[in-house]
Design a protein around this nucleic acid. Structure first.
Lengths: 341, 341
DNA sequence: CATTAGCACTCATCGCTGCCGAGTGCTAAG
DNA sequence: CTTAGCACTCGGCAGCGATGAGTGCTAATG
């Protein structure tokens, strides 16, 4: 569809614009080493590329900038995914492994690392509740009235919540309930816990434990909470450094988006597996229509359980970020699989 | 020091400027109902007030704005702390109680509520580690290599962390260690746990449990983490709506401050008890020198355990916010005391 | 026929100017 | 002591021309 020369020119324009954030003129392209033809020729080609919809002109006498279609072509055909320096990647891996062992807040750390390396904003979606199963239930009494309910999942997530203890249930019954719960329900997906509690286990439970209904109620609260997908974000400030966000209104709508995480959760969880690139309005979130989102999924023992995204202006360093995600999402999967058997 | 009329004028200027964010002229003040004298008189008084340092003039032919000293006088002498509508406060209390029971993330909720009510940014410091004691230790194995260590404190905080299990320590020893730990150390302040582990308990432990040193090591990680004071923030976007933040650079330095929570933690934890107001550069954090911070402490069973702050432009609604904090910090203390006995 | 040099044309940006209006300070009268 | 009147100040804004980067078109060239 495009000649080699057109591809070269398109690629040059995208690269230049990514660096400078300013419309690219024919003269500046003609100065590149790998370009042997004159500005006039380039102008003709640029005119053609504009007709085909790969470039746009902010106003008559300005240079060209890539259109969404132009970025799309660049990402699909011009990015060389093998170009990354291997030494670099090994260093990163090192850095990565060291960092990740320091805490259980794995995803927060991962988000922070990605944001630091790429200098873009990063968002990460924690393990999907769809695949997590119950590992352990614990009830720690705080006083006569209150206790903390703790649920541990097979992905190592710990959910906890303060509850009030029903007055007429003795401590011994609570203990029996917890033991029974752990014996019967360990390994059950959180998604099915509730129905199993009421249907299959309900009868048996009612014979063993007095006042079991109130106790089930306590646990339900934590379950509902752990169903919420957790979103981790990092490096908002990097976004503000970009010239496209010198307008406070844009910053505000972006911050509002991040405050109300639901939209982002939906966006991330709807991504397909592997490296995905959404350019400009290809996502349907108003506030980031002038942004691009590059996502990668990570998995545990072969099961796709979460998503990592890098958010930047449409003028973002696609090649670099895609390479990075390519390399590191595999590493995360490895690390996770090793840790949680 | 100031005449009644000067106080009236100062108060009027501060009120007007808080509303409009624009220099206040003599004419606009003379239009108020409670002002019976002419613009010229007001001009003279304003000139005097400026000489005394309560007002400032952005440029020769502009109106006056309050100086830091002016705000200070306003806060100390002109704010009527009893002025709050009681009906309002009862409604708020209601709203407050309902919200707070929904989750264990008490402080995050509190921050969100305050930010919503006041339309300013709110920051809250969780219970101070200085006063929290150990309630329960739990170790949940995830695989042969890894386990989750969980620590519950008397304030209901739950800290958890993934650790690798030392290979040569059998499961039975781990259980004994945990039991011993809970039996001997429940009620001990987290601050002293480490030294107690090594000194007083160390000997005894070494007799009971083989490989106890590795196990202590596992717990240490979580302890270090729970020592970090937790900061909860909410409503950053409200700040951006203020005209003083139409400059992106200011937004950026503010966001950076919030990203790196340490500075804010230090700022909040250095506040004295009761309602405190820091105006402009009275705090020593560069990024918020054109902001004011109003803080209140909350307590549990009479013990001061945390701090809540409302951050806004120096031109903030002191009266409203101070009243709100006054009323609601008591409520938080009540609720906390009730929940955690 | 593709390429390129030359040239007229367009348009954003910047600095300059003059005008407007809000608001002050001073003076003198009440 | 208060107030009316008036000259003065200064930020903000619209209008203006100069500047320069960049284009599109045409005609010459290999």
């Amino acid at each position: 569809m495009l000649s080699d020369r057109q591809r070269l020119i398109l690629s040059a324009i995208v690269d230049d614009y990514i660096r400078s954030a300013e419309p690219v003129g024919s003269r500046s392209i003609s100065k590149r080493e790998d370009v042997t033809f004159s500005p006039a020729t380039i102008r003709n080609e640029m005119s053609d590329l504009e007709d085909m919809g790969f470039l746009e002109q902010p106003h008559t006498s300005a240079g060209r900038i890539p259109s969404h279609k132009g970025y799309r072509y660049y990402v699909d055909h011009l990015v060389d995914l093998a170009r990354m320096n291997n030494l670099d990647s090994r260093e990163l891996k090192q850095f990565f492994t060291v960092q990740i062992q320091q805490t259980e807040k794995v995803m927060q750390q991962v988000a922070a690392i990605f944001s630091n390396i790429t200098s873009y904003t990063s968002i990460a979606l924690g393990p999907e509740m769809f695949h997590t199963t119950l590992r352990h239930l614990q009830l720690v009494p705080m006083s006569d009235e209150a206790a903390v309910v703790i649920i541990v999942t097979n992905t190592g997530q710990v959910e906890n919540r303060m509850v009030s203890i029903p007055k007429d249930v003795p401590v011994s019954e609570i203990e029996r309930f917890v033991n029974f719960f752990n014996a019967k329900l360990t390994g059950v997906p959180l998604l099915h816990l509730k129905s199993k509690l009421y249907n299959e286990i309900g009868d048996e439970l009612s014979r063993h434990v007095a006042g079991y209904e109130e106790l089930i109620h306590l646990v339900e609260g934590v379950l509902n909470e752990s169903k919420e997908e957790k979103l981790y974000t990092s490096g908002m400030t990097h976004m503000l450094a970009q010239p496209e966000f010198k307008d406070v209104e844009k910053v505000k709508s972006l911050l509002e988006l991040f405050d109300e995480s639901r939209t982002l959760v939906r966006l991330l969880s709807s991504q397909r597996e592997g490296i995905q690139v959404q350019i400009g309005a290809e996502n349907n979130v108003e506030a980031i229509h002038n942004c691009s989102l590059i996502t990668a999924t990570y998995s545990m023992n072969g099961m796709h359980i979460g998503t990592i995204g890098i958010l930047g202006p449409t003028r973002m360093e696609y090649a670099k970020v895609m390479n990075l995600l390519q390399y590191l999402s595999d590493d995360i999967s490895d690390i996770l699989s090793r840790w949680y058997k």
